[in-house]
Design a protein around this nucleic acid. Sequence first.
DNA 1: ATTATATACATTGACAGGCGAGGTATATAG
DNA 2: CTATATACCTCGCCTGTCAATGTATATAAT
Lengths: 114, 114
Amino acid sequence: MSIASDLIRGHTEAIILANLIEGDSYGYKINKAILSNTEQQYELKEATLYTAFKRLEEAGSISSYWGDETIGARRRYYSITNEGKKTYHRLKQEWQTAKKLIDKLIMGEENGND
Amino acid sequence: MSIASDLIRGHTEAIILANLIEGDSYGYKINKAILSNTEQQYELKEATLYTAFKRLEEAGSISSYWGDETIGARRRYYSITNEGKKTYHRLKQEWQTAKKLIDKLIMGEENGND
DNA sequence: ATTATATACATTGACAGGCGAGGTATATAG
DNA sequence: CTATATACCTCGCCTGTCAATGTATATAAT
């Protein structure tokens, strides 16, 4: 992919929570959704994704349950908790703040708006 | 400071190059400039700063020389190279791309513009 | 039958950047 | 002579990312 992972680093959890705000989902699907949303410009690697799920669940931001698929591979679904919703809103605000700061710090005189 | 370091991670080099684009400078001063530019909201820690200088110099993005101070502590000045200017412009473009992607991924329906 | 591909989850071990803690040295103010 | 500001530097830990690898189910092609 074309985006350096260090630029996304630290946003993994917010990205996952943003997905789960739209409804319960599972790893493979979230992975594909991100690829699709970014026109294959960014991929949240599986190892990264599953370790992030573990962190989020330990933090109480999400909960999980096995789907009742009778055919095909089993799926572990994740659900955002109320705690996770709060975290998500906090992370969104932090991103807005960080975005402005980084713009100021690296863009110099140029205007960073679209 | 109020900004999680993982949100800045990966921007350290761009921030330093943005400073040096304005003219030669040295570690302590760049450190204070960032603090001041962000109203103390972000600080590039000294250990981070000096390891980044080393990386940038090894990569040929900056060069350094000792100042000729006759009083006070000695200063090691850094200068951005032509190679470094190219890198800086590339990093700025990457930031613009990443910013849009992250907005799309974590902001959902909301508009991330100021 | 067997190979390949897609779906789906999970772990291990290495790597890289950030940074707390510590150290050195000069100069000034109390 | 102690504290504070300026100024540089390094060691070792921590944390998040990810390539590699493994498991299992299902379908399509050879």
